[in-house]
């Protein structure tokens, strides 16, 4: 199962590396969102510092939607969805592979956006523990967002107008990830007195739920799409 998942992930990442959609379109969109947030808050650095975690995760989710949409469309543009169904790869492996590919893309995006908020918003990581919390939160959030995104991408795949439907369905599901990851980053950036590790545990729970549900339900959605 894991070998097949790696095959799918490798294929999706190879396509992304060649087309560079994430880096030429999704990343600029995310950076633009960060800049616009700054304009909207009158470029007030103390305010931006305080709201860095929330603004960061909103930017990640919006930009992540584009990456999820892109990865979903890979299997629907030229009938590759049918070819996958005719292959020997189990649906759970396809889910896992696509989830891994989106996670890697989101992680790369988050690393660059963290640099962005450090530079543009004047945010600061206050300790080594804060840095570790930031890193682990990014990884777990990426898995959670990618798992839910892959699942909902398959859910909307066969529907006309899926580009607009996906955000409407997915964003409410990702609200717990947004809240938990923001609280965890609050602790990491020292912008609020909260227990970031407790929020990270909750975030991990959501990620496990999305992952489990995706592994179980993806095959059904693949058939319906």
């Amino acid at each position: 199962m894991f070998r097949d998942a790696l095959l799918i992930a490798e294929k999706d990442l190879r396509i992304e590396a060649r087309s560079r959609v994430v880096f030429s379109q999704v990343l600029p969109f995310a950076i633009l969102a960060l800049v616009l947030f700054a304009f909207a808050l009158n470029a007030d650095r103390p305010v931006l510092r305080d709201f860095t975690p929330g603004l960061f995760w909103v930017a990640v989710l919006f930009a992540g939607l584009l990456a999820i949409q892109r990865t979903t469309n890979l299997e629907h543009d030229d009938g590759t969805n049918d070819a996958l169904r005719l292959s020997a790869i189990e649906p759970a492996s396809i889910f896992l592979g696509k989830m891994m590919a989106i996670s890697v893309q989101l992680l790369a995006l988050e690393v660059l956006l963290i640099i962005g908020v450090l530079v543009f918003y004047g945010a600061a990581i206050e300790s080594v523990a804060g840095g570790a919390l930031l890193a682990v939160t990014s990884v777990v959030s990426s898995v959670g967002v990618a798992a839910a995104g892959t699942l909902y991408g398959a859910l909307t795949a066969g529907i006309r107008g899926r580009e607009t439907l996906l955000p409407i369905l997915l964003l409410p599901v990702l609200a717990p990830v947004l809240i938990s990851a923001t609280r965890s980053f609050d602790d990491a950036f020292g912008s609020a007195a909260v227990n970031g590790w407790a929020w990270l545990a909750l975030l991990g729970l959501f990620a496990v739920v999305y992952l489990t549900f995706g592994l179980l339900a993806y095959g059904i959605l693949l058939e319906e799409s």
Binding site: K11, R14, R18, D77, D78, T80, I89
Partner: peptide, 24 residues
């Protein structure tokens, strides 16, 4: 099955496509 759609990934090379489906 050969249908109306190609079942190919546009951003992969010819060889990469055929190898992928062989591995799959």
């Amino acid at each position: 099955l050969i249908g109306h759609a190609t079942g190919l990934y546009r951003d992969l090379t010819v060889l990469e496509n055929v190898v992928f489906w062989a591995r799959a």
